[in-house]
Simulated assay, not measured.
Amino acid sequence: MLEPAIKSTLTLPTQEVYYRLYRFDSAPSRRLLLLHGGGVAGKITWGAILPHLKHWNEILVPDLRGTGRTRYLDHKEHGFEGEEVVADLAALLDHLAWSEFDLGGYSYGGMIAMLLKASRPSAVGKTYLIEPALLVKMNDEESTRSHEMILHAAKRLRDLENIGEGLELFLDAISPQRIRGSKNEEIIRERLSHRPAGLASAIECVSHAAKQLDRTALIAAQANVSSFIGGRSHPEIYRRCREIAAIRNDWTCHLIQGADHALPFQKPELIAELMNTDSNRSKT
């Protein structure tokens, strides 16, 4: 796996924010911030994509709250809100003097990417959203069922004797059409089990945001977006993505066939290829 030029920790009042900074001397002078999803840290999420990215000479991959090597100062797990994760990133960007950058986010990290873009609109150029949380709200019955399932998963993940059940509920909620019992699912479960209480906190973070945020306003705050949806994900997600793209000249929607919610792990080279292609392109 590609090794970063810098591996370091930024100590904040409540967090030790761990990050990796990759440098590519042959690439154009351009920066990219990549945010992972819930439960699986930055290096694993983006590791297979990074070697194929061609248009950025600096790529920053932090571990978000509840995941990887980023920890509360007491090294215990605590709940958090999306705005707190954005504040961590803002402090890291200021520390590194990153005033302009492109931005990518997967799942929970996609939601955080949208919040970061809304908070620093002039700083973010191109945005890549891979199966972002909060892109779509299902009908009331599906939304209620999914919300109850995901919160039940979080509760089980905090109970060390019920981690397996919690992971099953979590995967059923985010990827109901996945290929069950596959080698890929086994790998995903193993990765998600590293910090189950941290994953629970990320789940609750998204759940709270779903209740509190104005999704329409959040989507309106985005600009120059390429979004990526797995072909085996819930069809409503792709329908909503296409709906946005139909009325937005700066929004492109890619359907990744043969992939479910875990598409960064299933189709990394294709994701990188599309990111490269879309890096300087807006719809006309």
Rank of each mutant, 00 (worst) to 15 (best):
G47E: 11
M114Y: 01
A197R: 06
L134T: 13
K283R: 15
R65C: 01
F265G: 08
K155L: 07
E185M: 13
E142Y: 09
S279D: 04
G47A: 10
L218S: 03
Q266H: 11
W251V: 01
R30M: 04
L218D: 08
L50G: 02
K117Q: 12
Y18W: 14
E273H: 06
M114L: 03
E100P: 04
A87S: 14
M111Y: 15
H78W: 10
A113F: 02
L218M: 06
K54M: 07
L160K: 13
A197E: 09
S143V: 08
C205D: 09
L12Y: 09
K183W: 11
H147M: 05
I203Y: 03
R69T: 07
L169V: 03
A220I: 03
E165H: 15
I49V: 15
I112K: 06
P132L: 03
F170K: 01
S207Q: 10
S146H: 13
L34A: 07
Q212L: 08
E100Q: 14
A220G: 05
D63C: 06
R195E: 11
A209C: 04
A41H: 09
S26C: 09
D250K: 02
H208P: 11
A221H: 02
N224I: 03
E83G: 11
D278A: 10
T45L: 11
I130N: 04
R65I: 12
K117Y: 07
R248P: 05
Y106E: 05
G231C: 03
H152F: 11
L60N: 00
Y18C: 02
S26P: 08
G125A: 01
G125D: 00
E204V: 06
R120A: 06
G258K: 05
S107T: 09
E141N: 09
P28H: 09
H261T: 06
I44V: 13
R71Q: 14
T144R: 13
G37P: 08
T277F: 10
T70C: 10
A220E: 14
D214A: 10
R191Q: 14
L169G: 07
R232E: 09
A197T: 14
T9Y: 07
S201N: 11
W56S: 00
T67S: 12
D102H: 00
L32F: 08
K126Q: 09
A90T: 14
A133K: 05
L151N: 08
L167Q: 03
L218K: 00
V86N: 02
I244A: 03
A262D: 06
C253F: 01
A202I: 13
I163K: 06
A133D: 15
A97M: 10
S193I: 11
G104N: 02
A262L: 06
K211Q: 13
K137M: 11
D63V: 00
K183D: 14
H147R: 15
H36K: 07
S193T: 13
E148F: 14
A154K: 07
D63W: 00
P51C: 11
A246N: 09
H261W: 01
